[in-house]
Each structure stands twice: as structure tokens, then as C-alpha cells.
């Protein structure tokens, strides 16, 4: 039985796909057989972030409609054999995803994988609903910014009421906060909500803080999950997230401003 993780946020552009790519690659790096599924039907992008856009032949909707087998649609990552990608369809048909179809595909994936990472689309429409419906764990990706925090809280309400676990009266989905695009400098200046602020408002277990980083754009430019950039702050922060998720005790980093010399403080970037 695989563990199903949804990466969700409500708001768009906060880093869901970047996070899905990083988390799935991170789990694969730790030796877990992992599938990452793009639920953003019509606006497929996970393939691009993972760097396999030219290898897409069949997609999620083809498998649901039984036009292709799961094995035909799954793309095996060239960097890590534990990782497979199921791309979204580019169809404009909003009803292409069905609850029964998604359940069947997830059940089949469960037979061979340890983890299934569901990359949710923005919003609270069908794709987002089905991405979280079958989840065991939820990574709520939030920026330290008012609209993102509000939308995350809205998603928490939906996770608690509109999931299979909620409907069947099972243990609730485990919810984790992932704070992304964090800038300790701006927090120190009082320009940005701090980790503590966001945690106080959302009352969530903190899985990690990903600093605002040039490495993220560089990674997406080249189709490489940022977690593979081991030298970068964002890459290291995501690796910490994986180790924490798997149960290791890893202290939080990238929350405090880096210390600079006097010269740097006065004239620095």
C-alpha cells in the first residue's frame, strides 16, 4: 500500500509544482519507489519542471479512459529509477477526471509504489478536489503573504471535510505546512510575515521553510528538480523536508538572516 501525499495550496504560483517535483525526487533519492501525478488537467506543467516534456506519449486522462495502460503512460525518470511521472492531459474537457477513474489509477499505482505524490492545481475545482480526496498526507504550500495564508486556511477546511478520510470517518489527513519563498531579511525588517506568524494563524505542523532562492528558477529553466542542486539553499531545504517527513529530527534552517560583515551590512546587496 502506497502512502498518498497531496501538494496543495488553493492559491496559484506559490510553488506547488516545484515542491511536488522536489518531494518526489527526494523520496526517490531516499530509495522509495515514488510516482508523481499531475492533476492540473489542461495546464500540464509538471513534465516541464521534471524535464521530461518531450517524452510524454500518453497521459493521466488516457489511462482513466482506458486508451492506454498505466505502464504506457508512466515516464521513468532518467536520473533516478525509483521515480515515475504521470503527466496531466492537455484536454480542455473539464470533466475528464472522474472520482472512480482517479481511484482506479491510484489503486493500481499503490500496488507498485511506496509513495504517490499528487500535484494539485490551484483553486478548489474538480482537479484540486480529486487531488486531495484520496490523500493520507497533505503538504500545504504557503507563501508568507496574506492571500496565500487565507487560501491555505480555506484548503485546510476542505481537507478536513471533503476528503475520503473525512467522509468515511477515518483518521483525518495529516496536514503539514511548507512555507516557501521565505525571506529572512524582509521578516527582520517587519516587511514579511514570519514563520511564527504563519504558524500561529494556521496552527499547522511545520514541515519546512524554503527560502526565496535563485536556484528555483535556474532549476525550472533546466528541467531539474531543485532538490538535485545540492549546493543551493532551496535544494538543501527540500532535502531537510524529506528527512523530516520520513521521521528524522532535522533542525529548521534558513529561517534566520545570514550574518554579514560590517561592510556587507552597510553596502551589501
Amino acid at each position: 500500500m502506497a502512502r498518498i501525499i497531496v501538494v496543495t495550496s488553493g492559491k496559484g504560483g506559490v510553488g506547488k509544482t516545484t515542491t511536488s517535483a522536489a518531494i518526489s525526487m527526494g523520496l526517490a533519492l531516499q530509495g522509495h519507489r515514488t510516482a508523481v501525478v499531475d492533476f492540473d488537467i489542461g495546464l500540464r506543467n509538471l513534465d516541464l519542471i521534471m524535464g521530461c516534456e518531450r517524452r510524454v506519449v500518453y497521459d493521466f486522462v488516457n489511462v482513466i479512459n482506458q486508451e492506454a495502460t498505466l505502464n504506457q503512460a508512466l515516464i521513468r525518470d532518467k536520473r533516478n529509477e525509483n521515480l515515475h511521472i504521470l503527466p496531466a492531459s492537455q484536454t480542455r474537457d473539464k470533466d475528464a477526471l472522474t472520482k472512480e477513474g482517479v481511484e482506479r489509477v491510484l489503486n493500481e499505482l499503490s500496488e507498485t509504489f511506496d509513495y504517490i505524490v499528487c500535484d494539485s492545481p490551484a483553486g478548489i475545482e474538480r482537479g484540486a478536489h480529486l487531488a486531495m480526496y484520496f490523500a493520507d498526507d497533505a503538504v500545504v504550500v504557503t507563501n508568507p503573504e496574506v492571500s496565500s495564508v487565507r487560501d491555505s486556511d480555506r484548503m485546510l477546511g476542505l481537507l478536513a471535510s471533503k476528503s475520503r478520510r473525512a467522509e468515511l470517518g477515518q483518521d483525518p489527513i495529516k496536514e503539514y505546512l511548507l512555507l516557501t519563498r521565505y525571506s529572512p531579511q524582509r521578516v527582520k525588517l517587519g516587511e514579511m510575515l514570519s514563520v511564527e506568524d504563519v504558524q500561529e494563524i494556521l496552527a499547522l505542523h511545520l514541515l519546512g521553510v524554503i527560502p526565496e532562492s535563485k536556484a528555483v528558477l535556474n532549476a525550472s529553466n533546466s528541467g531539474t528538480p531543485v532538490i538535485l542542486d545540492e549546493k543551493s539553499d532551496a535544494g538543501q531545504a527540500y532535502m531537510d523536508v524529506i528527512r523530516r517527513y520520513l521521521g528524522e529530527h532535522v533542525p529548521h534552517r534558513f529561517i534566520e538572516q545570514e550574518r554579514k560583515g560590517l561592510f556587507g551590512r552597510l553596502f551589501g546587496s
Binding site: E145, D153, V187, E191, M192, L193, E200
Partner: peptide
């Protein structure tokens, strides 16, 4: 310090 304003607004709204 606009972050303090943001926090207060969010706490009320949420």
C-alpha cells in the same frame, strides 16, 4: 512594519 498589519488582518479574517 507592514507584517504586523498583515498578521492582525489575517487573524481576524481567518
Amino acid at each position: 512594519p507592514t507584517a504586523a498589519i498583515a498578521k492582525e488582518r489575517l487573524q481576524i479574517l481567518v
